[in-house]
Every structure is written in C-alpha cells, then in structure tokens.
C-alpha cells in the first residue's frame, strides 16, 4: 500500500466492511456496551409506528373510511385477499392478521434502508430474519401437527405418494427440503438482500468520495457514482417491497403445505 492510499483510507473508509454494519452505541453504559444502537432504536420505532398507526387509524371506524383508515384497510385487505385467501382458501382469514403483521413489520424494517438519516435496515443483521423465520417454521409445523394429528403430519410431509421401492430415495430429499432448507432459506433470503443492498449503496456513495480524494479530476466519475446511488436507491425500494411480499407469501405457502390433504 502506498503512503497516499493509507492517508485516503483514513479519510474515507473504503471499501466498506462488515464492521460498518455494527454501529456504535447511542447511549453507552457499562463496558463494551451495545445495548442501544441505531439498529435497536429502529426496531423500537418500527414497532411503535405499526402499533400506533393501526390503533389510531381504526379507533373509530367509519362506514365511509377516512384517509388513514383507508390506508390501513387496504394494507390489511391486500394481504388478506391476495395472499391469505388466495393461497389458503377460507381458512386463510384466520391467518390474515398474522400475515399482515408480518408483511407490515418486514416492510417497515426494510424501509429504513433508504430512509434518510436511518439508512440501514435492521434486517441486514441475520438475527432479525432468523427470528422471523423460526416463528414461521414453528408455526407451520404446529399447524400441520394440529391439522393431521401429531406425528401423522410428519408421515404426511415425509412420505410422498410413490411406490415403496423408491421411497428410501425420496424421504431424505423431502426431509432436507421441508425441514432443513425452509427456515434457512427464509432467513438468508431476507438478510442477504438487505445486507447486499446496504453494501451496494455504501460502495457507490463512499466510492465517489474515494475517487474525488484520489484526484480532483475524477469529479465526473464521482458524480456518476452518486447518480448511481440515487438510481440504486429506487432499486432498493423495489427489493424492499418484493422481499416483504416474498417472505409473507412463502410463510403462507408453507402453511398451505401443512394444511394440504392427501391428493
């Protein structure tokens, strides 16, 4: 490393590292205190926003909805009609409240990635998607066991309709794809998307500064880099909506599989 680039590295932290996701404590107390970081604060704010918004907008429901009530109703209606009922049929109404909560929560948590000042999504830490995935995992197994009656669910889930001599080949595949891959892929899909999104925005923003610091004549390239940041922010918004939707749809799909009868 030349002397110049070490000086630069001190000015603009480039390239971005995984450590950039571990933000300093807002309110430090004790040793190595990371109890209250931006991530924690964003989680609390998200939960507070969701609770307060839905309580306020549906406190006095009108027959002709007010604007707030209309927004709340269309979010709930979207998840109920287009995800819950479409995938689970009439029983879907029972799952609509949970699926709506899941959708709104993931959407808001993801949205912090592009909100100015916040600029990072709590979901870019694997812990948050992992807990959500574990909830979905435990839920679909519990529902399956309740629907089919205890261990009969595992017989239903693991033994496909096939001749006996091919079953030893298929049962390990079924076990792996249903009980091992599902929670893992749910968590990793959401986490990786949010992690990569934040990383991408960091690379283009900091890259612009790094180039400008290296040579003032690189200004046009820096401007292109920052324009790319803006364009990628819009792409990020697409990813945010899509991932919230995909997580909800897959949870509904797993519940659908657990409730399915022999065909």
């Amino acid at each position: 490393m030349t002397g110049q680039s070490t000086v630069l590295a001190a000015e603009v932290p480039f390239p971005p590292k995984v450590e950039d996701f571990y933000l300093p404590s807002i309110l430090p107390w004790g040793e190595h205190s990371v109890w209250l970081t931006k991530i924690t604060a964003l989680l609390w704010i998200s939960v507070a926003i969701i609770i307060i918004f839905f309580l306020v907008s549906y406190r006095k429901p009108q027959l002709v909805p007010t604007k707030k009530q209309w927004i709340a109703e269309s979010m709930y209606g979207f998840v109920r009609n287009n995800i819950a009922i479409d995938m689970l049929g009439k029983r879907g109404i029972n799952f609509a409240p949970y699926l709506t909560t899941l959708f709104v929560f993931i959407f808001l948590m993801n949205l912090w990635a592009i909100v100015p000042i916040a600029q990072i999504s709590p979901n870019s830490h694997i812990a948050f998607p992992a807990v959500l995935a574990v909830i979905s995992y435990v839920m679909f197994i519990y529902i399956g066991m309740k629907h089919h009656g205890g261990l009969k669910y595992f017989k239903h889930a693991l033994i496909p309709p096939a001749p006996w001599f091919i079953l030893p080949l298929l049962i390990p595949i079924e076990f792996f794809s249903t009980f091992l891959v599902r929670p893992f892929s749910l968590a990793v899909r959401l986490f990786a998307n949010m992690f990569a999104g934040h990383m991408l925005l960091l690379v283009f923003t900091l890259g612009g500064f790094a180039m400008l610091n290296a040579n003032a004549w690189f200004l046009p390239f820096s401007l292109v880099s920052w324009a790319m940041t803006i364009a990628l922010t819009f792409l990020e918004f697409l990813v945010i909506c899509l991932q919230a939707y995909v997580f909800t749809v897959l949870t509904a799909s797993y519940v659908q599989g657990a409730l399915a009868d022999e065909h």
Binding site: N82, V181, R182, G257
Partner: peptide, 29 residues
C-alpha cells in the same frame, strides 16, 4: 370472489418448492 375470477388459488410458492426439491435432491444424495 377474492381474485375476481373462478380460477383455483394460484400456488405462488410452487416455484420455490420446485427449486428446493431439485437442489436438496442433489445435495442430500
């Protein structure tokens, strides 16, 4: 009539399930 027509419910998760079967078959065996 939630989806506005009389189609059976669309299996949106089917693609993921299919990919999961293919990959897990290859990985397990």
């Amino acid at each position: 009539n939630p989806s506005g027509d009389d189609q059976p419910p669309p299996d949106t998760g089917m693609g993921m399930t299919a990919v999961a079967y293919l990959i897990s078959g290859m990985l397990v065996w």
